[in-house]
Nucleic acid binder design. Structure first.
Lengths: 146, 146
DNA sequence: TGGGACCATATGGGCGTCAATGGGAGAAGC
DNA sequence: GCTTCTCCCATTGACGCCCATATGGTCCCA
């Protein structure tokens, strides 16, 4: 699996570290990446994490918009200026900084959520709520997956 | 048989495992799959299980939309983040995790329900009720095909 | 037609491995 | 010198793999 799929919740230890699920670590190292880039999501109260190619994704998104629009400006500010680098320790853990805590509401546990080409850090209950909401929205739209 | 048909109920053992019916296992191994992807159904209190092609179907649907829209984000959250991988042990059993239990209400027994290209996990009595309901609905509609 | 052997599936439990977690010590920065 | 971060090692608990047993059904043969 070279993509980020599924989800898992891990505990933050006394030093503020949390283990990245092994499936995600495998996907990261498979891409040969040791340093990850992360920034605040545009839609959800979550922090997105990925390799350098994650920047490409948002540059594509920005390219899809008028480069001088407000939206493109804000996106650049958040992605280029607002992002931070995160390193994994030899055991595959990362430090949960205030940058992450403040935006997500994370305090003691982190839910890692696969998003295909990247993954996200969520406060566990916020993730549960967002899922319920997304499901409700789909029902309202009457869209069926099949 | 390369499709999932009929239904069967098996007991969860002390370690939280349950045997996948042999007919379903045959259909799975015929596709050469050892790792299954499963996620919560959009309509019923059931967990859907299938091979990677189940994921492909959702991704095709996502690809049809604006990839950066809210709708696509929510879809990704449910499909990429909401699913979990399930492995079968050498005897063809799977672990019934809390992810499955909480959503379906399964506690001691699991009803496996074939759905053509995938199958589902149900709490036995919930499945019985859903069948009765479906039958009633059809009667009300005068047995017209949809 | 009845009994018995055989086979496949389902089920139960032991054990090793690995991921997650906790804590200590050295190194680097304030 | 104190704090903070990084690396290293220990612990533990869950999960995957293995082998053993039970149960029900089918086939064969008397």
């Amino acid at each position: 699996m070279n993509r980020f799929l599924s989800h898992a919740t891990n505990r933050i230890d006394a030093k503020g570290r949390v283990s990245v699920p092994s499936a995600f670590r495998a996907a990261v190292s498979e891409a040969g990446v040791r340093e990850l880039y992360c920034f605040q999501d545009f839609v959800f109260p979550a922090v997105s994490v990925g390799g350098p190619e994650l920047l490409d994704r948002f540059e594509r998104q920005m390219a899809a918009e008028d480069p001088f629009s407000d939206a493109a400006n804000q996106m650049s500010l958040l992605v280029h200026g607002g992002g931070v680098f995160v390193k994994l320790d030899p055991e595959g853990r990362l430090m949960v900084t205030d940058f992450i805590r403040d935006f997500t509401g994370i305090s003691t546990d982190v839910t890692f959520v696969g998003r295909g080409d990247h993954f996200q850090l969520w406060e566990p209950r916020a993730f549960a709520r967002a899922q319920v909401e997304a499901r409700e929205r789909r029902k309202q739209r009457g869209l069926r997956p099949e």
